[in-house]
């Protein structure tokens, strides 16, 4: 009888100990690939290999901060979210606005004097700072078109590709009005 109780207790303890491990293995079970295209304008959508990146990142928190329930890697974030605060959605766009400097968003920030995350990046900034920051540090690809190819509209605004200025066409006095 007593022996059985001990076994049960031992099993419970074991389960508690392995709980963090279980959480991590859950994270690795995230989506295989994610299509990041909500902001696509001058470039094609990014097909993000989530599975590959979970293998490279030391922790889900590297990209998802505290939202997966893990301790954040940034000590500044850990001041409040030390234990990890699981969010209902872990998608970037759930927290990072896709219209960062719109009058509505600016009014929302101003209307909340208690808000700590006043300088929270917009979606585009969050994507690029996170991806490029890590790629630069880890030697990943850093060219614009390594992740998304520029479309015709993009070539036009960059005056590149078939929209490139003819060589020698301008002598530096092409201004005027």
């Amino acid at each position: 009888m007593g022996g059985r109780k001990k076994t049960l207790l031992g099993m419970a303890a074991l389960m508690l100990l392995t709980a963090p491990l279980a959480a991590q293995s859950w994270a690795a079970e995230g989506p295989g690939t994610v299509e990041l295209g909500s902001l696509a304008n001058y470039y094609s959508a990014v097909t993000f290999d989530h599975a590959m990146h979970t293998g490279v990142a030391a922790s889900c928190a590297e990209c998802h901060h505290h939202t997966t329930g893990l301790a954040p890697t940034d000590p500044n974030c850990a001041r409040c979210h030390k234990a990890g605060d699981k969010a209902n959605s872990v998608a970037c766009k759930s927290c990072h606005s896709d219209k960062r400097f719109s009058a509505e968003d600016l009014a929302k920030i101003e209307g909340n004097p208690q808000l700590h995350h006043k300088g929270k990046l917009g979606l585009k900034g969050a994507y690029h700072q996170k991806c490029l920051g890590c790629h630069t540090a880890m030697g990943g690809p850093t060219g614009c078109q390594d992740c998304h190819t520029r479309n015709d509209k993009g070539d036009a605004i960059f005056h590149s590709g078939k929209y490139a200025p003819a060589p020698g066409a301008s002598d530096g006095h092409g201004g005027g009005h």
């Binding site: 614009c144 605004i157 960059f158 005056h159 590149s160 490139a164 200025p165 530096g172 092409g174 201004g175």
Partner: peptide, 9 residues
């Protein structure tokens, strides 16, 4: 006006 060089140059 059109730039002298592409903006990705």
């Amino acid at each position: 006006p059109e730039p002298d060089k592409s903006f990705d140059d």
